[in-house]
């Protein structure tokens, strides 16, 4: 058996990497969505900003997030490698190719959908992640009277010079939270119709990518059992193909139209 090629150089090995990184990214989407739902809270971003701080500073989460970035890169790089090989497998194409007769459009265009997603992810990270970590974000202070729950909010367009990082102080009567205001960053960004458009496009691409991708990942790792294949396809379509992209898409729309 030792004669056989190493697993990762084989076609199936490369597909396995696509599958596992893809499924990992899918699980991330759920976490990301649950967190981002805080955007819909009408609390001037109190919960969301706290969440944003937690996500960027809690060590285990940080480790996972680096894994996540790596997964995105690996998923994209292997997609490129596989696509190149696939193109080479048919050097002369057909004059006529009736793909719709035998397969779904999205399944044949995972590369295009993935490219759209990659553009989206880069833009998305530049808009928020990069700005939040290294760029300029607005600043916010929440002063909450613990007895009454009354809250005073001080919003500044720029971060004050004495800001030494996120602080949550509690003197027994008032809780003071000083934070970068990612919430307002989001709210401002989603007033830009072009950006909203891009996000909607990104989510549409996500939907079609995952309707095929989720169940495809299971097929690739060899899990195609007739008892479970139905539920996997159902989750792929309804959870990852419809529910999650719609929920994400609702965020820019919410800020554009409601806020």
């Amino acid at each position: 058996m030792s004669k056989s090629k190493p697993v990762l150089t084989s076609s199936l090995g490369k597909k396995l990497i696509m599958s596992l990184t893809g499924l990992f990214l899918c699980t991330f989407l759920i976490v990301h969505l649950i967190g981002n739902l805080q955007l819909f809270k009408d609390d001037a971003g109190y919960a969301f900003n706290n969440y944003a701080y937690f996500m960027t500073h809690f060590t285990p989460i940080k480790v996972v997030s680096y894994l996540l970035y790596l997964s995105i890169i690996v998923h994209a790089v292997y997609a490129l490698i596989l696509t190149t090989k696939n193109k080479a497998a048919r050097p002369v194409g057909y004059n006529q190719y009736d793909g719709k007769a035998n397969s779904a459009w999205n399944s044949r265009n995972m590369g295009i959908l993935g490219t759209v997603l990659l553009v989206f992810i880069v833009t998305h990270m530049q808009n928020f992640w990069y700005q939040y970590k290294f760029g300029s974000t607005p600043y916010v202070e929440y002063h909450t009277e613990l007895a009454t729950g009354n809250q005073e909010i001080i919003s500044l367009d720029e971060i004050p010079n004495d800001y030494i990082g996120y602080q949550s102080l509690n003197d027994g009567t008032i809780e003071t939270v000083k934070s970068k205001d990612l919430y307002r960053q989001v709210a401002v960004a989603f007033k830009n119709p072009l950006l909203v458009g891009l996000y909607l496009l990104g989510m549409a691409a996500l939907a079609f990518h995952l309707i095929h991708g989720f169940q495809s990942a299971f097929q690739t790792i060899g899990f195609n059992h007739k008892r479970y294949v139905g539920i996997i396809k159902w989750i792929g379509i309804w959870v990852f193909g419809i529910l999650i992209p719609i929920a994400f898409a609702a965020m820019p729309l919410y800020f554009y139209f409601v806020k």
Binding site: M1, S4, K5, S10, S11, L12, K14, K15, L82, K85, N86, A88, A89, R90, G99, N102, S103, A104, S107, R108, M110, H212, Q215, S216, Q219, T220
Partner: peptide
């Protein structure tokens, strides 16, 4: 399984993307 997959790769066939075609 290993021998046949290796040979399939060596022949220059493409990779399955589960389109079902």
């Amino acid at each position: 399984a290993q021998a046949m997959v290796d040979q399939m790769d060596a022949e220059g066939f493409g990779n399955c993307t589960n389109t079902g075609a």
